[in-house]
């Protein structure tokens, strides 16, 4: 599992350069690590494992929308681990659990775990999309779900290409915020 850092970092760097396949592979592998991590942590403090998948999705969303905060000069695993742990603590804090039960951990814990079972959250993507303003919703539908290019989407929606990019970006951030909120209420 030690090889993970180098592999994950290479995938992350490629993804930051716009390599969609690498980004997909990265998120797929991270989702398994995150699932195992959250199930493990929640079980250890006697919480239901059902919350794990919400946290996995919230964290994936955060990793994606805030990936510009990764400094390629630094190690990748501690970066992901910091996000995963932040989201867990935030979740526990806002669901009225005390932090006294959180065991001390290090980034190596995170790499050592892998899980790909029960990968569905209570969130509904259509409902998330429905909350977005029309422009963002259409941009995300075309570009991120139907897989149209930015240029095609721009032509269809009568927007400029940069406006489409901005709409997608803002829309994803709004969805990330909605997921983070829905998780804790």
């Amino acid at each position: 599992m030690i090889a993970n850092e180098a592999e994950l970092r290479a995938l992350m760097t490629a993804g930051l350069n716009g390599d969609a396949a690498a980004h997909r592979a990265l998120l797929d592998r991270l989702s398994r690590h995150l699932r195992a991590y959250y199930k493990n942590k929640l079980a250890r403090i006697g919480r239901s494992a059902d919350e794990a998948e919400d946290l996995v999705q919230d964290t994936l969303m955060a990793i994606h929308t805030r990936r510009q905060t990764y400094d390629p000069e630094e190690l990748f695993t501690p970066w992901v681990h910091a996000i995963a742990r932040y989201k867990l603590i935030d979740h526990l804090r806002h669901t009225k659990a005390t932090m006294t039960d959180m065991p001390i951990e290090d980034a190596a814990d995170f790499e050592a775990q892998d899980d790909h079972a029960g990968a569905e959250s209570a969130l509904d993507i259509n409902r998330l999309l429905a909350r977005l303003p029309e422009k963002m919703r259409r941009a995300i539908r075309h570009v991120k779900i139907d897989g149209l290019s930015v240029a095609e989407t721009a032509a269809r929606c009568g927007m400029t290409e940069s406006a489409v990019k901005v709409s997608v970006h803002r829309g994803l951030k709004a969805m990330a915020a909605a997921i983070a909120q829905g998780r804790t209420t």
Binding site: G15, L16, N17, G18, D19, A20, A21, H23, R24, L27, D28, S31, R35, E53, V56, Q57, L60, M61, H64, R67, Q68, T69, D71, P72, A119, E120, S121, L123, D124, I125, L128, I140, V143, K144, I145, G147, S149, V150, K165, V168, H169, L172
Partner: peptide, 23 residues
């Protein structure tokens, strides 16, 4: 929502990221 669907969504048409943006 299935996590795989979310990953599909996030990794379709990925834009390159400007690394100096934060600073």
């Amino acid at each position: 929502m299935k996590t795989d669907d979310l990953i599909n969504l996030l990794s379709t048409n990925v834009e390159p990221v400007d690394r100096r943006q934060l600073r």
